[in-house]
Every structure is written in C-alpha cells, then in structure tokens.
C-alpha cells in the first residue's frame, strides 16, 4: 500500500477534492484547538503557553509511530512516501525569515488562514504579508537562485545520516519529545500568565 493517489488511478478533481476535505478537517481542528489565536501561538515564544510544540510534536510522533508499524505489518509502503529534499543554506535562511514572521505576525501560515477564515483582521494583514513575500520571492528569484539551490543534499533521512535504524530513531525522538514536554510544562509554570481559554 502507498499513498492512495499513486495506487488507484483517479481523476484530478477527485484528488483535489480529497485534498480539500482533508484541508477543511485540518483547519477545523486547528481552529477548535485554539490555534487561530495569535496569543496562543506567541505564547510558545514567551514560554507561557507551549501548546503549539506539544500538539505539533505529538502529531509528528504519532504519525511516525503509526506509519512505521503499518509498514512493518506490510500495510503501508514507506518507500512511496515523498521525502522532502534538503537545501542547507535555503533551509537556514528560510527558517530564520519564517521564524521572524511567525513571532511578529503571531501566526504560522496554516493557522493564519484559520484565523482569516473566522474573520480576524490581523490575520488578513498577515495573509497579505505572506502573499507579498511570495511575490517578492518570485520576482527576486534570479538573484537568490544560487542561495536557494545551494548546498543541496538530496532527500536525506536523519536516521540514515546517523547510521541508526528508523525504529531506534523514533524511540530516541519520543524520549527527546517527552523530555521537551516536561521542560515545556516547567516553563509554563514559570512564565504563567492569566488563562485566556475563555477569551479565544
């Protein structure tokens, strides 16, 4: 088994429809979990609310554990799963820009759209900023092309670079995540602010 669209030949509209439904589900859960509030997201940086790291890290780990078990039982072919390609320089520069935008805007691109769809004005400005950034990137691409394609490493996997089995890597990642959650809880107590759950 593998990604559905590569297994069953399906028309493009159906492929897009499935993507749309998954996207709506994703957006709805984000909204329900309170991620459309920039205060919750910014809390991550100030340490008073670490929900973001907990949620996203847990999601990644659950997906990792699930897909590896499915692959072990022969139900999922992990070789068909796309592995993102690694451009070292672009990742660092892009990461810094993205991080700066994140803390200034108070949203990440996904949650920004969530907040936009419930009518938050700051999210609309944030979205415009994102579009401007994309436009600038496209227009200046010839000048930054060298940087964007620089130090290309291909679709690498961390466990392969470390020379350990994928299962062991997962285990280490879970331990690391649990330790991080524990630290996050400590930080939440230390930098505590009044509860905002009822306001958002």
């Amino acid at each position: 088994m593998g990604p559905i669209s590569s297994l069953i030949p399906m028309p493009e509209w159906l492929d897009l429809l499935i993507a749309l439904l998954i996207g709506i589900g994703f957006g709805f859960s984000l909204e329900q979990a309170g991620f459309s509030s920039s205060r919750k997201l910014a809390g991550m940086f100030y340490g008073y609310d670490t929900t973001v790291i907990k949620v996203f890290f847990t999601a990644a780990i659950v997906a990792l554990v699930g897909s590896q078990f499915l692959s072990y039982f022969g139900l999922l072919n992990l070789n068909l799963v796309f592995v993102n390609e690694f451009y070292v320089a672009a990742s660092i520069v892009g990461g810094i820009i993205m991080g700066a935008g994140f803390i200034m805007g108070g949203f990440c691109p996904g949650t920004g759209l969530c907040a936009l769809s419930i009518g938050k004005i700051d999210a609309m400005i944030f979205f415009l900023g994102g579009l401007t950034g994309a436009f600038l990137f496209a227009e200046t691409y010839p000048f930054i092309q060298k940087l964007a394609n620089g130090s290309y490493k291909g679709p690498v996997k961390i466990n392969e670079v470390m020379g350990i089995s994928p299962g062991l890597f997962t285990f280490l990642l879970i331990i690391a995540a649990a330790a991080m959650f524990w630290l996050a809880e400590i930080a939440e107590k230390r930098f505590a602010r009044p509860d905002i759950t009822n306001e958002i």
Binding site: Q68, Y72, N79, S165, P166, F171, A178
Partner: peptide, 28 residues
C-alpha cells in the same frame, strides 16, 4: 492523561527500536 500518553508512546517507540525496520526495501 498526558503522562499516560507519553508512557504509551515510549512503550511503542521501544518496540519499534527493537524491530528490524530496514528503512529501505523489504520484499512485500
């Protein structure tokens, strides 16, 4: 619940760590 969840995940991770997941291809 959070601690329970973490313990469960760590247990599953431990099982995964012992499995001969090749990471590459196995005959299917």
């Amino acid at each position: 619940t959070r601690i329970k969840f973490s313990v469960g995940l760590i247990c599953l991770g431990f099982i995964l760590a012992l499995l001969p997941l090749s990471g590459s291809r196995t005959f299917i």
